[in-house]
Design a protein around this nucleic acid. Structure first.
Lengths: 147, 147
DNA sequence: TCTAAAGGCTCTAGTCACTAGAGCATCAAG
DNA sequence: CTTGATGCTCTAGTGACTAGAGCCTTTAGA
């Protein structure tokens, strides 16, 4: 049985984050010791490791909640789990494509700068005038949040 | 002179977002008409276009605030503007590298799945056991937020 | 000129996944 | 037995918006 600190150390998830996961119902509330401190067992550790790993792979907490629900039912078809992972893959691919376009644009901007004054600065100029871009780039919404 | 709706149409920035930019001081509060509605001029339009373009390129609002400050001073050296763009480029590159690792991991997971039951599902298994990964992947913190 | 719809206003609260801090209580080591 | 680390709850803040309530103003058509 571990304290929350030991659990944090064992999984690499910070203490407040563990409490947050409990608060949103992603992790069951564990038993407490006589002094009201949380005590975790190895099953909790495994579950938290699962969550952490899925987070590292960019799954949103809601998808992780679903995956955890599925993993509790071993006899079931894994169709849904596949679909979730597949969806995540598609999103990661879209983000990569998008970031590659941004990188190209930023590189062009930075390389064209002659390091003179603001008045001649290619960075400022390009930002002010989208027509100077080679590519269209998508709305910020597509760029938001992470994986 | 445009209403906020026309400005939104002209720049592709949504109406509530424009008001939000005003609220956080990124866009100056414009004059109002007799009915207390905002009226924008072309300078405001250009400034908002700058902001939008910079957002599309993934600059955080604080960086944009700085860039706008610089662009108001045309005689100044563009060293700082370059540095901001360069920093952004580095971050975008880091995100691309990170996402490529994630994509590889997700692809492996998805392709190994035999589409059977949860008990045999590679997706669930890999998520539960980081040792099954080929790569280390970074902390979620590095993955957060966007460009 | 009237009316109805579209657009505008302010304000508050919600999103996601945490993070930070205040102000306490409890535990482990010396 | 003390001290410092760790734990507890609760509230509020982050970034960059988005959604909604409840109201007012403008504009186009009849």
């Amino acid at each position: 049985m571990f304290s929350i600190g030991k659990l944090a150390g064992a999984t690499g998830v910070k203490v407040p984050t563990i409490r947050y996961y409990e608060q949103i119902g992603l992790l069951a509330a564990p038993d407490r010791n006589s002094g009201n401190q949380r005590l975790y067992d190895d099953a909790a550790r495994a579950r938290l490791a699962f969550i952490r790993h899925a987070r590292e792979l960019g799954f949103p907490l809601e998808a992780i909640r679903e995956l955890l629900g599925l993993s509790d039912d071993p006899a079931r078809s894994c169709k849904q789990a596949d679909a979730i992972a597949q969806r995540q893959l598609v999103q990661v691919e879209a983000r990569i494509a998008r970031l590659n376009a941004l990188r190209a644009e930023l590189e062009r901007m930075v390389h064209q700068c002659a390091h003179g004054t603001i008045a001649e600065c290619r960075v400022i100029e390009v930002l002010g005038n989208h027509a100077l871009c080679t590519h269209e780039h998508a709305e910020p919404s597509l760029v938001q949040e992470e994986a």
